[in-house]
Design a protein around this nucleic acid. Structure first.
Length: 342
DNA sequence: GAGTTAAAACGGAACTTGAG
DNA sequence: CTCAAGTTCCGTTTTAACTC
């Protein structure tokens, strides 16, 4: 079956008796044509049923309008929602996204990045923690990271310190006798590490007894359940008769702890207050909706893409001025008060 | 100087040529 | 017949230059 050949600028040019340069200018700089000629070309495009060819455009000007995204995994709601918001930015900025989900293995993620680079992505958004920002900064394209180590690249992060401080202050305000913070072992250069500092500073300032418990909770519900059970049993014993305010580093863990409480007491006891982090749907959908430090994912995604776009645009100028220093933006969290705090 | 154009350029695949 | 070198092709953008 003989396939009909695409209608090209050449066909339009022949049909209208203009050159293909003029057809190109109709698309890219229409005001440089007289309105009459614009109309002639516009009619011809309709008549011949022209369909734009972005591949040819990319071949000619080298600009793919592709942005790479490297995300850790989509099994956690925080990341899938972030990706959702990043993809939604197409409407505002017009960039298209090539997405890889990393697996924590550095060689694999390097290969993903090479693949993205070979498709001539104009910029890269990284949420995965696997590769250092030093390595990412060597890529020679604009890079923006979200909630990860970001020393040598631009980034957008939640104000983790502020969020933790507000959460802790709420527990203090609600007259908890002892404050407990549960977190995973986190490196100091990761933004989420600041949750610990926010908690501790708020406790020290108020002079309230407190404890930070660092434990590896793994990545899944199954892995987290056992250590949380153990910690719960300990807390029950150690702080019996006191009102306990517990600040957890994510909503999933807050939900697991809430389940343990309800299994034991068939209600949320008065001597417990819980607050999570992220503002994930689970916090809202839990049997008692959980108070949490909500990350403004839509705003973070928009800031990240916007920061990337401004750098990508800069590189297209005749005399680009690269950023002297990486830009680090911070988005404030929103404290969401629900039923696990009074 | 506004409106227009011819020809080169982009980067790799696929096809053609020529030598052995 | 094989293999490497050379050419063409895809459909746009870009540059420099032309005309009125």
């Amino acid at each position: 079956m003989a396939r009909k050949k695409n209608v090209t600028f050449n066909d339009i040019a022949q049909y209208t008796h203009f050159s293909k340069t003029t057809i190109s200018r109709y698309f890219n700089n229409p005001d440089s044509l007289t309105p009459e000629n614009q109309q002639i070309i516009s009619d011809a495009l309709d008549k011949l049923n022209y369909k734009e060819n972005k591949v040819a455009k990319i071949l000619a000007n080298g600009q793919t309008e592709f942005v790479g995204v490297l995300i850790p995994s989509l099994s956690m709601n925080y990341y899938s929602e972030m990706l959702n918001q990043i993809l939604a930015s197409y409407k505002k900025y017009g960039y298209k996204f090539l997405v890889f989900a990393g697996n924590g293995h550095d060689e694999t993620e390097r290969r993903y990045i090479q693949e993205l680079m070979s498709y001539k992505i104009e910029g890269l958004i990284v949420l995965s923690h696997t590769l250092s920002s030093r390595e990412l900064s060597d890529l020679q394209i604009p890079v923006v990271t979200i909630e990860r180590e970001d020393q040598f690249v631009c980034s957008v992060n939640t104000d983790n310190y502020l969020g933790a401080h507000e959460a802790t202050s709420l527990l203090i305000h609600n007259h908890c006798d002892v404050l407990i913070h549960l977190n995973s072992p986190t490196k100091e250069n990761v933004p989420a590490y600041r949750r610990r500092a926010g908690f501790q500073d708020a406790c020290v300032k108020a002079g309230v007894p407190h404890e930070v418990i660092i434990r590896d909770f793994g990545l899944s519900y199954q892995e987290a359940a056992a250590p949380l059970q153990e910690i719960f049993d300990n807390i029950e014993q150690k702080y019996a008769g006191q009102k306990k305010g517990i600040f957890l580093s994510n909503d999933d863990h807050a939900n697991i702890l809430l389940n343990l409480l309800i299994r034991k007491y068939h209600t949320l006891p008065d001597d417990y207050e819980l607050i999570g982090f992220d503002g994930a749907p689970i916090s809202e959908q839990a049997i008692y909706p959980i108070s949490t430090v909500g990350q403004q994912i839509d705003q973070i995604a928009d800031e990240a893409v916007s920061l990337l776009v401004s750098q990508m645009q800069e590189r297209k100028k005749r005399h680009p001025v690269p950023l002297a220093e990486p830009v680090h933006k911070t988005v404030p969290p929103l404290l969401i008060r629900r039923q696990t705090t009074t």
